[in-house]
Design a protein around this nucleic acid. Structure first.
Length: 375
DNA sequence: AACACGGGGTA
DNA sequence: TACCCAGTGTT
């Protein structure tokens, strides 16, 4: 990396390093992808880092365990189908991560025979940006490479009293330069993880717990009483509204699903065949029309369930209507029928899973059998 | 530089 | 509700 001139006096730099590593040694969090010093498994470190992109630790842990159970090695992941990978990613969000993970696994084996051991080679792989390349290089391979995520950016902005929006290029460059200086020396992986843990558990966004902070004496923002103001919150646009109508078509006790196109929102996932409803349009009519255009002639009945979800950039509303078809298109393509017991293992978004679970018993695939059993 | 891309935790 | 989270890729 090209770095600006040093910004940390060397005495201050060693004090920070010493305090951070001592704090780490005094009791860091135990997490399933963390190993004793020098015993890191690069494959596991990589999987965890990708899952942790924009996702909090507590949310990741169960998905990580489930994923490693199915794909314990790089080879297992490289041999899996995209559908299998997405199934184990189902509910975690940002599904492009799962697709890129599989693509990178295949490329790693083809070109490097394993997880490559340099920042440059890592950064060239799908799903690796500056953060993940630095994290894997330092944690898995002990290389002196910086990584700046949201937590580290906040910690460093306070430590160095760095003004300006963290996402602005000039601020980013300063924070990365700080991180690069700080990581130089023994135990780079643990130094980086200590910075991240500090941001997650002590140097919080709204209420930094400076009394418990190992580097509070070195903190420039605290010295100026500005630790609560830095870094400035970033402006966000209001989520746009997305109204979707979908059809509950049951055939032989199985539910009709359609695969979304790769890329874009929920790319590659299965969902109830549906359509966006434009503002002012009538949902059942819009649904029937859109499905007919895709070769699926559905008679749309009454509403069965509705769920709403707020994503970062969308306010998503899904409404399910009973649907009946005279004849299904030939199998293959993007349609499939799924039995109720298959649903837990399918690649569905959290919203679609919630919608299916919200269906009244009369609308669900198992309904007919259950009614007969009661007779 | 701005936007798309999920879902859940926290105050 | 608002903000953010172990970010990356596209336009």
């Amino acid at each position: 990396m090209v770095l600006p001139m040093p910004v940390l006096p060397s005495a201050r730099r060693s004090a920070l390093r010493r305090r951070l590593l001592a704090w780490w040694d005094a009791g860091h969090r135990e997490l399933p992808w963390r190993f004793p010093t020098g015993e890191a498994d690069p494959y596991r470190v990589w999987i965890s880092e990708v899952m942790l992109q924009q996702t909090q630790v507590a949310a990741v842990v169960p998905y990580y365990l489930r994923f490693l159970e199915r794909f314990p090695t790089l080879e297992a992941l490289a041999e899996a189908s995209e559908d299998e990978v997405l199934a184990r990613w189902s509910g975690l969000g940002y599904y492009a991560r799962g697709r890129r993970l599989r693509a990178a696994a295949r490329e790693m084996l083809a070109r490097h025979g394993g997880v490559p051991r340099s920042r440059e080679a890592l950064a060239a792989l799908p799903g690796f940006g500056p953060y993940t390349a630095g994290a894997v290089a330092s944690i898995a391979f002990g290389l002196e490479e910086p990584c700046v995520d949201g937590n580290v950016a906040r910690v460093l902005a306070r430590l160095g009293c760095v003004e300006g929006a963290p996402e602005a290029p000039a601020t980013r460059a300063r924070l990365w330069a700080l991180a690069a200086e700080l990581v130089r020396g023994p135990r780079p992986g643990e130094l980086n993880q200590a910075l991240m843990d500090l941001g997650a558990t002590v140097c919080g966004k709204a209420a930094p717990r400076c009394a418990r902070c190992p580097v509070a004496p070195c903190c420039a923002a605290r010295a100026r009483g500005r630790e609560r103001e830095l870094p400035p919150a970033r402006a966000r646009r209001a989520p746009r509204r997305l109204e979707v109508a979908c059809a509950v078509v049951v055939q032989g006790g199985r539910l009709l699903l359609e695969r979304r196109p790769p890329g874009g929102l929920f790319g590659g996932l299965w969902e109830l065949p549906g359509a966006e409803v434009a503002p002012g349009a009538t949902a059942p009519a819009a649904l029937a029309e859109a499905l007919a255009l895709r070769g699926l002639r559905v008679r749309v009945g009454k509403e069965l369930a509705r769920v709403e979800r707020v994503l970062t950039h969308r306010r998503l509303a899904l409404t399910a209507f009973r649907g009946s078809v005279a004849r299904l298109p030939p199998p293959g393509g993007q349609l499939r029928l799924a039995a109720p017991e298959e649903l837990p293992a399918l690649a569905l978004s959290a919203a679609t899973r919630a919608l299916v679970e919200a269906l009244p018993a009369s609308g669900r695939p198992a309904a007919r059998r259950r009614i007969r059993e009661e007779e």
